[in-house]
């Protein structure tokens, strides 16, 4: 049975990836699962300098989901290379680094810095809703997406993935801008911008006012956007948003995602990625499917 798929130059053992920001740098989850079993690991979003993140509270549980306002807390690109990458390199799993610049120059700087052994891909984060500079501010503007993608593409030999925000009028335009800029793949969706209010204080729960909604609450939105994007681009799409089990994962693959990423579910069940891989295998066995690529994009409309 073949579960392997290709995203740009990256060969994945299977189509199950961890979503940025939900898997740290793999350390915590290595106590629960064998990281070698994963298709790829996308690490927590990195910035040029260490970032403290937003003040608490940072989490708010909603109906079938979580609103978060973490604010890209991370040790910075240098500390990642020095302290986290050696650990990740000890596993046989492709590492994709999510980068979140505040300026175009910062994206280029990080892409150049990360063009080193042990890293297979760069995921351009133009979709974080929880920072004041960069993030989603770029991702809602197709011209910025194009510009950043093109410059990062030139700065690295690695596979370039652009992670899109769903908080736009037409995601197809953004996807096409990334493809035109030279992206090898597109990943979507990042969190849906949302809000929660403390009724006693009559204040927003988060100091930042808005947060990012993830979890099963957003799955139908994500699936629809993946469906829209695969119809307009010819590069591979990594689908994500609320995947909780192998059935959810299969929905994204059937719609046309080449791979899928599991995010919030890692918080609920640290074993979920491996369980999803096993579930996909079982589904293929039961349906006598030899190659995962037979499933990808097989939707009948």
């Amino acid at each position: 049975m073949n579960l392997s798929v290709e995203i740009g130059k990256i060969k994945l053992k299977n189509p199950v990836i961890t979503a940025s920001g939900t898997f740290g740098f793999g350390r915590e989850y290595s106590e629960y699962i064998d990281l070698n079993k994963l298709g790829a690991i996308v690490v927590k979003g990195l910035t040029v300098k260490p970032r403290e993140g937003n003040p608490p509270p940072r989490l708010f549980e909603t109906a079938s989901g979580i609103l978060n306002s973490i604010g890209l807390q991370n040790p910075g690109v240098d500390a990642f290379i020095e302290r986290e990458l050696p650990f990740l390199k000890s596993f046989d799993v492709p590492v994709i680094v999510n980068i979140a610049g505040e300026t175009v120059e910062e994206f280029v700087y990080m892409a150049e810095k990360l063009d080193i052994e042990g890293i297979e891909g760069i995921e351009i984060n133009v979709s974080c809703p929880n920072v004041k500079k960069g993030g989603m501010a770029f991702g809602v503007n197709p011209d910025d997406i194009f510009d950043i993608t093109r410059k990062v593409r030139k700065a690295t030999s690695k596979t370039v993935i652009v992670k899109l925000t769903p908080n736009v009028t037409d995601i197809k335009v953004c996807a096409k801008a990334a493809e035109k800029g030279g992206a090898d793949a597109i990943s979507l969706i990042n969190t849906v911008a949302g809000m929660a209010v403390d009724i006693d204080k009559r204040r927003p729960v988060f100091e930042n006012v808005i947060g990012g909604l993830s979890g099963p609450a957003i799955k139908p939105i994500a699936l629809k956007m993946v469906y829209e994007v695969v119809t307009v681009v010819s590069i591979p799409v990594i689908g994500m948003g609320g995947i909780m089990n192998y059935k959810d994962a299969l929905e994204f693959l059937i719609v046309g995602a080449r791979a899928i990423a599991v995010g919030t579910c890692n918080f609920v069940n640290p074993y979920c990625t491996v369980e999803i891989i096993d579930g996909i295998k079982k589904y293929m066995e039961e349906n006598e499917i030899e190659d995962i690529n037979e499933i990808i994009g097989s939707i009948k409309i």
């Binding site: 920001g21 740290g24 003040p55 940072r58 708010f60 807390q73 890692n266 640290p270």
Partner: peptide
């Protein structure tokens, strides 16, 4: 005490200054 998501240190949700 703080609101938590993962409980294992990955999500960075339960921040303490």
């Amino acid at each position: 005490e703080e609101k938590m998501a993962c409980g294992i240190g990955a999500c960075l949700g339960c921040a303490c200054k």
